[in-house]
Simulated assay, not measured.
Amino acid sequence: MVNLRGIRRRYRIGGQVVNALDGLDLDVPEGQFVAIVGPSGSGKSTLLNILGCLDRPDSGSYRLDDIDVSTFDDELASDFRNRRIGFVFQSFHLLPRLNVLENVLLPRRFLRGSDDGLEAHARELLERMGLSQRLDHRPGQLSGGQMQRVAIARALLMKPALLLADEPTGNLDSKSAADVLDLIADVHGRGQTVVMVTHDSEVAASAQRQVHLRDGKIDRDDVA
């Protein structure tokens, strides 16, 4: 489902060239839950950005659902990202002036074509997240755990092929973090492919598979 071959991404910082990803190969089968772990500077964020079509590799290929997305221009990448990739961020990225339902429906604003059934699907997702009584609340009226559940619902609105989670428990207390991990496990249990970036070994342990990065390469690949 996810197929990366020979992915290289370099950045110039001052007068120095940094190899953020150095010929990385990675396959993620459909329906797998993978945690990407590693120290700061290992390439985790760069890998996530490439998987999410937010950045392009300097060389190598990235295929998602057998579509070569590494060559997409900005417009194609944006449309593909909206339809096929869901994002869950550490800092939630909810719009404070919108209520819960409106935040979940945000991807609809960028949709080309029919949006039939999306509002009903949003309401169904929020019910699954235990937030059916909070539809009219704004983010400032919610706890951190509740805001992350809204963000997960938003990420799932378009029924993405791939769900990307970037440190999804980083801003949460231990109880809320455990609840969010349970929700992600439930989403995965329904067949969703999930790639989660985390520096926390306990969070990574919730995944089926742990891919450890070091210096832009895979250092270890552990399957539970």
Rank of each mutant, 00 (worst) to 15 (best):
Q208W: 02
L157N: 03
R128W: 09
E30Y: 03
R190Y: 08
E30T: 07
D25A: 10
V18M: 06
A120F: 01
L162E: 11
T198H: 03
L111Q: 05
L64N: 09
R81K: 08
N103K: 04
R81I: 09
L105D: 05
F80C: 10
A185V: 00
I85G: 12
V69H: 06
H121P: 05
F33I: 01
D58Y: 04
R10V: 08
D79R: 09
L213M: 11
D173T: 02
G170Y: 00
L106D: 01
N82M: 02
I67S: 13
A205K: 04
L105A: 06
P168N: 13
R83E: 07
G117I: 14
R9W: 00
A35C: 00
R8M: 08
K217L: 14
L94A: 14
R123L: 02
D222Y: 12
D115K: 01
A20N: 11
D179P: 08
T198M: 01
G23E: 13
L163I: 00
D74I: 09
A178L: 06
A122D: 09
L95Q: 08
A20Q: 08
G189C: 10
D166E: 14
R112T: 12
G41I: 05
D74M: 09
Q192I: 10
K159Q: 03
S42N: 10
G14F: 00
A178R: 09
R190M: 09
G216T: 06
L172I: 02
I152G: 12
G15S: 08
A120I: 10
D186P: 13
T169E: 07
H188W: 07
S59I: 14
S174M: 05
V223C: 15
R5F: 00
G31D: 05
P57F: 01
G31C: 04
D65K: 12
H121N: 07
D136E: 11
A120V: 09
L181G: 01
S176M: 06
F80H: 02
Y62D: 13
V194N: 08
S201L: 03
Q32Y: 11
A207G: 01
R112W: 11
S176L: 06
G145I: 06
L118T: 07
R112E: 15
A204R: 09
A177D: 02
F92Y: 13
S61H: 02
M147F: 03
G117Q: 06
N3K: 13
A178D: 08
T71C: 15
T71N: 15
A155R: 13
L213H: 08
G145Q: 04
L24A: 14
A155Q: 10
H188L: 02
I50Y: 05
T193G: 04
E202H: 13
I36S: 15
I67G: 09
H199L: 01
L47Y: 01
R8Q: 10
L51G: 14
F33S: 00
G216N: 12
D182P: 12
L162R: 15
G216A: 12
S42M: 04
N49Y: 10
R56V: 07
N19S: 11
H188A: 00
L181K: 08
V2A: 15
